[in-house]
Design a protein around this nucleic acid. Structure first.
Lengths: 337, 337
DNA sequence: CTGAAAGCGCTTACAG
DNA sequence: CTGAAAGCGCTTACAG
């Protein structure tokens, strides 16, 4: 490929001048600028990003820190949002090939040797061994759905509490009183806030919450399966369940079906996320919508602002949520009505 | 971050020597090697990849060329396989932020300016405007599920014909004779081979193929919906349908359900891909399994071989396929039996 | 407005 | 076995 020297020679100027027109510096005469621009086109010259990065100390690259698999639909849609925001930003996404099984592996050092300008993290555990090091480094970072902050790290999340309250309200208004809650871990912001939303919703509607109605599990389909199995054992079985992910809801529904009952006739189920699959799953899921793509886009936009303004304080961004009613919720005993 | 100069000074050697131990050159005394290695650890030194890449003319980076959205489960699982293969390879994946809407955008030039060592492409159309340029460049490329070849480009795919024949055989053995085929475009290898498999399977079982039984559509859920709607109009409605993607199958099933019929009681449906969702969809899909993750891994492994051996001819790799029978196929009229 | 020169952090002949 | 020097393709004070 043509280098800046080739362009300089061809255009009859110095490499410094070529560099100036590439970078849109004002102190270049119109005539020179035109000639150089033309030569750049003729030679199909494109600056070598590595060389530029070497002197500027950056890479126009955003690294991703992810532990959950891509088959997770939340992750998938997030990536779509991220991709969109990156589109005309000048930044590319690099998927650091992490060897999390290797003890001596350091995610931060990987970022440093790749000169990554910023990191977007999701599916990150509070106690991830790489987290502390990342927060201590001064690599700008935006986390999604995790309330992790640092001098250079902010996060973006959804109105978790309000969304969950809406789901409870919806069920209560349908006439349910035995409403259970299948949740991910409670010891982080997302889990805690959804739990709060559930409790407050129940309280608002003066509904009783037996201890056995709150099941903590993980966000996968298997998590929903395990939790729902326990709920089915109860003598006072719930007539409705609020889950904190769509996958959990799908798992719960499969348990209900397997035991010969129907959704929503016998038990109503609400999911969380409104992923693509909540719509194509049969029956289509009633679920709490988060704007996943827009969360992904905002994460990137915010990150880029942080990268380009050292003094921009890492923000906490909250996106709205709302309930989407589809086919998995109905009045209690709907089958017979 | 510490540079090679810091290490050299601290260890009391030249940068050339440090470079030699980093790169495991043999001509370094044991004593020196030890001291330098220790200093590297002490200083937490990690080579700057951009600088190294600048002199070596490469980046230890693989670019991805993808036009289909990540929400496509085939793409998603492929990425998982790719991620796994990349794990200890020393290469990172870079998602080039493509601006395919911008006419002056050139994917190849983007690759060149990022110094990408190779490209893995999927969801690529034969007539993609960027394709010709990519094939002409000498960037090593592996395509997935597209029979695109070039001097430096090979591809990997599945036993498309054999897999489809198995599906037809399964249905024929169940007693079906009116078997329709919902396919993606026929003018590429994947589509053509599956079509051949269908025709040959039908012939083997001496089954008739009315022209109206072959519906060409696109691989999405919508594609399946449109095609199935047309099949439902037929006076001689098929009792079984082979689809060339799971998403198409899911779309077809939703149409069948909406018209008040049941799967598999009234109409049997077979998918293709055996994606994660074929299992959690209800009813669970009978589908032709392709080893998507292993396809992703092999694509990367092959690509790396191509990158590191200039004379390694771009291969064509074919992975096995097999039918996975689940709940969407049964004897014709199964409902009444 | 233009260009010579130093430098970013590496690798690689080459000389010793 | 070791190191001085040139060079990869850029940018940036700085001098003119």
């Amino acid at each position: 490929m043509a280098s800046i020297h080739d362009v300089a020679k061809e255009a009859g100027v110095s490499v410094a001048t070529v560099s100036k027109v590439i970078n849109n510096y004002p102190d270049v005469s119109d005539k020179t600028r035109k000639k150089v621009s033309q030569t750049i086109k003729d030679l199909k010259y494109h600056p070598n990003v590595a060389a530029r990065g070497l002197v500027k100390g950056r890479s126009w690259t955003v690294g991703v820190f992810v532990t959950s698999p891509f088959t997770n639909p939340f992750v998938t849609e997030l990536l779509e949002g991220i991709k969109t925001a990156l589109q005309n930003s000048g930044y590319d996404l690099v998927l650091l090939s992490t060897r999390f099984d290797d003890d001596s592996y350091s995610f931060v050092e990987h970022c440093l040797s790749r000169n990554v300008d910023g990191v977007v993290g999701f599916g990150v555990d509070r106690d991830d061994p790489h987290l502390e090091e990342l927060l201590k480094s001064d690599i700008p970072t935006m986390f999604v759905d995790a309330d992790i902050r640092g001098p250079r790290a902010g996060y973006i999340t959804t109105e978790n509490k309000a969304g969950t309250m809406q789901a409870v309200a919806h069920l209560a208004e349908l006439g349910h009183s035995r409403i259970a809650f299948i949740s991910g871990e409670l010891d982080n912001a997302v889990g805690a806030l959804r739990h709060e939303g559930y409790l407050e919703g129940m309280k608002t509607h003066k509904l009783n919450v037996p201890e056995s109605y709150v099941k903590v599990s993980d966000y996968s389909m298997e998590g929903g399966t395990v939790a729902m199995n326990e709920l089915m054992e109860l003598k006072e079985r719930p007539t409705a369940v609020v889950c904190t992910s769509d996958m959990m809801a799908i798992g719960a529904i499969s348990v209900i079906h397997r035991s010969g009952l129907s959704v929503p006739e016998d038990i109503s189920v609400v999911g969380f996320d409104n992923t693509y699959y909540s719509e194509i799953f049969s029956p289509a899921l009633t679920t709490i919508n988060q704007n996943i793509r827009s969360i992904g886009s905002h994460a990137i936009e915010t990150l880029i602002t942080m990268i380009e303004n050292t003094d921009f304080l890492p923000p906490v961004v909250t996106e709205p949520s709302n309930l989407v009613v589809r086919c998995t919720t109905a009045k209690p005993g709907g089958a017979k009505s």
